[in-house]
Design a protein around this nucleic acid. Structure first.
Lengths: 348, 348
DNA sequence: GCATGAATTGTTAGCGCTCACAATGACGTC
DNA sequence: GACGTCATTGTGAGCGCTAACAATTCATGC
């Protein structure tokens, strides 16, 4: 750093210092092949000396590319959205894109639309919307934007390119597992009705029961929070001895609340009531007892979403389908079987 | 939408359609006062009809402002970083800025430096670095960047503007609480040595013990994960009956593992051993038993960080100090007292 | 009726870069 | 030795916007 000025140096400044034209500087920066080594060295030296950095806005204006993607998300402190967000950014970075995020407290048509406007004004070339609420899905289909949008967690129903974990399958896995373990019926504590994932999990649960010719018992509702699970758990405790032996809870946080309520009511898990969750948050393995749950591969969700979005942006035909479905995986732990291994000890 | 063309419409297109000059369009968009209502309406109508959106790059080039901030973070699926990230974005949005995030798997000098480069190429006007690892702090002080950087979670030692929750105070609160409850000694399960927050919590713990004239017992180390807490908990269980009655665990996830290990060893919490954590993750209230812990106000961290960064960007003297410290808060639950209220029931 | 100033609108010149093309020079071929 | 070819470098024209200034219109007072 030889001298510092008020205005940061431009490409022309560097060119002057190196004794070449600004275009040659551009070529060096762009890794253009036809530059003599000696010239390249001169230019690089000048860049180094002046601490030059290419101006983002000028570059973006000239190329008509910002190499920036947008992400709209909500509830980003929850494990699922946070993991998806992380995976999205990592995948985008691998493709040379930067990610601008808008995190909403509540996902409504209005907030979603404002978020898209904001990202649009921020020059993003495309957007991934983590939009598990059903209201948001409709909004996405209707809103007009000057860039492609890929939805995550909306289910595959809407007429929007989307990437989803197969929630229905996950619910069938969990419910089927409980039925296979000998339970006559499986109860369900569902998530909020306006979440597509909650709806899909209810349907998967119903399907698994139907397949086993079992009448579905009363459906309970929570709001994903441990507290709502705790309350539902208190209600469930009242049904022990009256046919309740197994519960499939729509997420791990609520399952935590259920476990606590059952324990307080003197109901043992899994001896009296087996409990399965959904998500496989890092804590689940250490619940009392460790929780059987369904794991979603968020890293893959992120990668596939970015791949799909870039296909759309580049105008190529999507290399896969524009409705991507990802298989979840059942993770069996002690909350459905008492004799399972301790945490941290790999089975077999 | 009357017609769609290949190139999106420019300001000049809108001007032509509205029968004014492009500058008038610019004035309307910029809410400039001196535009006749009638003219404004004409322009707005043309904008609406053509679906015009102002080009971000051109605007940024002309104004020399991108109105974008960068955030570098790691471990973003953990509750603390995720909450901070959320608060930062929300605060930035309130100030009219967009946030570009780079989420690192591991925070090293190299990855941090690459992240800053990347954000720099992305045209950010300033960066907030969530950099709790000590190695990263040094890197921040040394690296040269063409924009201001505010550090979060680095502790206030480094010569970089920073915002921190007072970890030392938090540890003193938790340890003091256990001592006040009658425990002769308080053990500590610490986080990794290269995390500043872990170091500060150890120091706070030591300070509280010193104040009570107590010799600190053996220090245990974990890596923040429930599994490491579980392992430490197994070790701790061996000390029950030999002077161990209270443990301050450096975060809630590890505390979860400790609770589980103690339970498995037949040690009751809090009757035999009291346990306190740190963070107040949403699950803590539903642990078995509900966990006493230290709550950090991430929303305030986010707001103060953005305020500080914008001060630096605008070149104004920071309205507060350039080392911001935020007080944490002790949350007492059943893991340190057996008679405390149930979850969700507000204390009288 | 015309000067005066304020309100409103238009004109011009960049912002700093990349792209397309032109120019230069070195080299080999017939 | 003229010519074609290729590698290397330079030139000019935007990209679409805002800022500064110039020009025009309009209301008002005497």
């Amino acid at each position: 750093m030889t001298h510092s000025q008020l205005r940061p140096p431009t490409m022309a400044d560097v060119a002057r210092q190196a004794g070449v034209s600004h275009q040659t500087v551009s070529r060096v920066l762009g890794d253009h092949p036809n530059v003599r080594d000696e010239t390249r060295a001169k230019v690089l030296r000048a860049i180094e000396e002046m601490g030059y950095r290419r101006n983002f806005s000028a570059r973006a204006l000239a190329t008509r590319r910002t190499r920036t993607l947008g992400v709209v998300a909500s509830n980003t402190t929850l494990y699922g959205p946070a993991s998806t967000l992380f995976a999205l950014e990592e995948a985008a970075r691998a493709e040379g894109y930067l990610v601008s995020t808008v995190s909403l407290r509540r996902l409504t048509v209005k907030t979603l639309s404002e978020a898209l406007d904001r990202l649009s004004e921020g020059g993003v070339e495309g957007v991934v919307a983590i939009a598990p609420q059903r209201s948001a899905v409709e909004a996405l289909a209707e809103l007009r934007h000057p860039f492609p949008v890929v939805a995550v967690g909306t289910g595959s129903g809407a007429g929007v390119p989307s990437v989803n974990v197969d929630q229905n399958l996950g619910a069938r896995l969990a419910t089927g597992h409980l039925l296979a373990a000998g339970h006559r019926r499986v109860w369900h504590l569902a998530g909020p009705e306006d979440w597509q994932e909650a709806v899909d999990r209810v349907e998967g649960w119903r399907a698994a029961l139907a397949e086993a010719d079992v009448e579905p018992p009363m459906l309970l509702r929570g709001d994903w929070s441990p507290l709502s699970g705790y309350r539902a758990g208190q209600e469930l405790a009242g049904w022990v001895g009256r046919g309740l032996t197994a519960v499939f809870v729509a997420n791990d946080q609520m399952a935590l609340g259920v476990l606590r309520a059952l324990r307080e009511a003197g109901v043992r898990t899994p001896q009296d009531v087996a409990v399965a969750g959904f998500d496989d948050i890092p804590e689940s393995e250490f619940f009392a007892p460790p929780l059987t749950t369904v794991r979603q591969d968020f890293a893959t969700v992120g990668k596939r979403s970015i791949a799909l979005l870039l296909d759309l942006i580049e105008g190529r035909t999507p290399s896969g389908a524009s409705q991507v479905s990802i298989e979840p995986q059942l993770v069996v732990r002690a909350s459905t079987f008492p004799y399972l291994p301790q945490p941290g000890v790999a089975p077999g």
